[in-house]
Simulated assay, not measured.
Amino acid sequence: MQFVFDGHNDVLLRLWTHERDGGDPVAEFSNGTDLGHIDAPRAKAGGLAGGLCAIYVPSGDLVFADPDKNGHYVTPLAAPLEPLPSLRIATEMAAIALRLDRAGAWRLCRSVKDIRQAMADGVFAAVMHMEGCEAIGPDLAALEVFHAAGLRSLGPVWSRHNVFGHGVPFAFPMSPDTAPGLTEAGLALVRECNRLGILIDLAHITEKGFWDVAKTTDQPLVASHSNAHALTPVARNLTNKQLDAIRESRGLVGVNYATAMLRSDGRSDGDTPLSDMVRHIDYLVERIGIDCVALGSDFDGATIPEEIGDAAGNQKLIAALQRVGYGARDLEKLASGNWLRILTSAWGEEYA
Rank of each mutant, 00 (worst) to 15 (best):
54 A>H: 07
322 Q>N: 08
120 A>G: 15
315 Q>Y: 07
104 G>Q: 05
345 S>Y: 01
332 E>T: 14
19 E>G: 09
109 C>H: 00
252 L>G: 01
335 A>D: 00
263 R>L: 06
164 F>A: 09
329 R>C: 07
275 S>I: 04
305 P>M: 04
106 W>V: 10
33 T>R: 13
244 D>R: 14
199 L>H: 05
206 T>R: 10
5 F>L: 14
114 D>A: 00
218 D>Y: 06
348 G>D: 01
236 R>T: 04
238 L>V: 02
125 A>S: 00
266 G>N: 05
256 N>M: 07
219 Q>F: 12
196 L>D: 06
248 E>G: 12
148 A>S: 13
247 R>H: 04
249 S>N: 01
9 N>Q: 05
51 G>K: 05
282 D>T: 12
165 G>D: 05
43 A>Y: 02
310 D>R: 03
206 T>L: 09
79 A>Q: 15
340 L>I: 03
61 D>E: 04
24 D>F: 01
101 D>Q: 03
36 G>K: 06
182 L>F: 06
30 S>I: 03
160 R>Y: 12
183 T>Q: 05
342 I>C: 01
253 V>N: 09
303 T>S: 10
77 L>Y: 02
239 T>S: 13
236 R>L: 07
191 R>C: 04
89 I>Y: 07
140 L>D: 01
93 M>R: 00
172 F>H: 12
251 G>P: 02
286 E>A: 15
226 S>F: 11
331 L>I: 02
63 V>P: 03
235 A>F: 04
102 R>W: 08
117 Q>A: 06
9 N>Y: 05
138 P>T: 15
351 Y>W: 11
231 L>K: 01
47 G>T: 12
89 I>N: 08
219 Q>L: 11
19 E>P: 08
85 P>E: 12
215 K>V: 12
209 G>W: 04
297 S>F: 06
332 E>P: 03
84 L>V: 07
21 D>I: 00
277 M>D: 10
60 G>M: 11
132 G>Q: 02
160 R>Q: 14
328 A>V: 14
102 R>I: 06
248 E>R: 15
184 E>A: 14
98 L>N: 09
13 L>Q: 12
272 T>E: 09
21 D>R: 13
280 H>D: 10
28 E>A: 15
84 L>Q: 14
119 M>C: 09
117 Q>T: 07
149 A>V: 13
214 A>R: 12
107 R>V: 08
234 V>Q: 15
258 A>V: 06
8 H>I: 11
87 L>P: 05
78 A>S: 15
61 D>M: 03
350 E>Y: 06
26 V>T: 15
16 W>R: 07
321 L>H: 08
10 D>R: 03
156 P>I: 13
221 L>A: 02
119 M>G: 02
319 A>F: 07
274 L>I: 14
146 F>V: 12
100 L>M: 08
300 D>K: 06
11 V>D: 08
80 P>F: 00
48 L>I: 14
124 F>N: 07
182 L>A: 13
306 E>G: 10
168 V>E: 13
343 L>G: 06
132 G>A: 02
